[in-house]
Design a protein around this nucleic acid. Structure first.
Lengths: 112, 112
DNA sequence: CATTATACCTTGTCACACAAGATATATGAC
DNA sequence: GTCATATATCTTGTGTGACAAGGTATAATG
């Protein structure tokens, strides 16, 4: 009881979209790949379940920030590849800016 | 239309409790005072409305992280003063740790 | 005396991270 | 052969918390 659910779940809010856009910046990637990458790195701090990621990707697509391409290999499960659009790059820049501003304000406060 | 609501609202999630605990660390304070302080400083980045803050304070009280004291001056509106408990100080330390870990992971990712 | 500032509280809305389910194919173990 | 695991996608429901928008009451100011 008293679960002590931690604040990581809340901390990710607003940051997750930025994380995904950033991961797509170097080139295209598919959903499962992003989940695996986030799970393996950063000691799981930025770990995300697939049930969380897929809605994010859908939102990004809906907003025009990513372009989607299906790839169906001769053997294997089809993959959905995501690639940043021009609008997506602008959004990435804007979110990075917002995130940095907020974090700087927090850091300044916590040091006072 | 297309409101572009920004991510600041989401970014505050999880951080706000930490902010309040931190502001109470030097000594007691009352709600309206905290709202004013946050509104005036940090270019409004960490600005909070009273409708947001009071529920936070209530949650902190409920969890035993703050102690509450009413002060009714001979003239003027009564104020509700909040002061950290020992459990509150531990929570402050724990949240600071969690926040720092998360932010470091994000910073590392964004630099890659 | 009407407005503004101080100081508190409540209700309803919205967004989103996540758990828990589901589907389908390929591979490896026994 | 079949049973489990890994790959890869998606959906539905739940809980949480920041906020808008309302409310009450007192003191100061023009």
């Amino acid at each position: 009881m008293n679960e002590r659910r931690g604040i990581e779940r809340e901390l990710k809010r607003g940051s997750l979209e930025l994380i995904v856009l950033h991961l797509l910046a170097p080139g295209e990637a598919y959903g499962y790949e992003i989940v695996s990458k986030l799970t393996s790195q950063s000691n799981g701090t930025l770990e995300v379940t697939d049930g969380t990621l897929y809605p994010v990707l859908y939102r990004l697509e809906r907003a025009g920030f990513v372009h989607v391409r299906w790839e169906t290999p001769e053997r294997g499960v089809p993959r959905k590849y995501y690639r940043l659009t021009e609008a997506g790059r602008h959004e990435l820049a804007a979110l990075t800016e917002e995130w940095t501003t907020f974090t700087k304000a927090m850091t300044k406060l916590l040091r006072s």
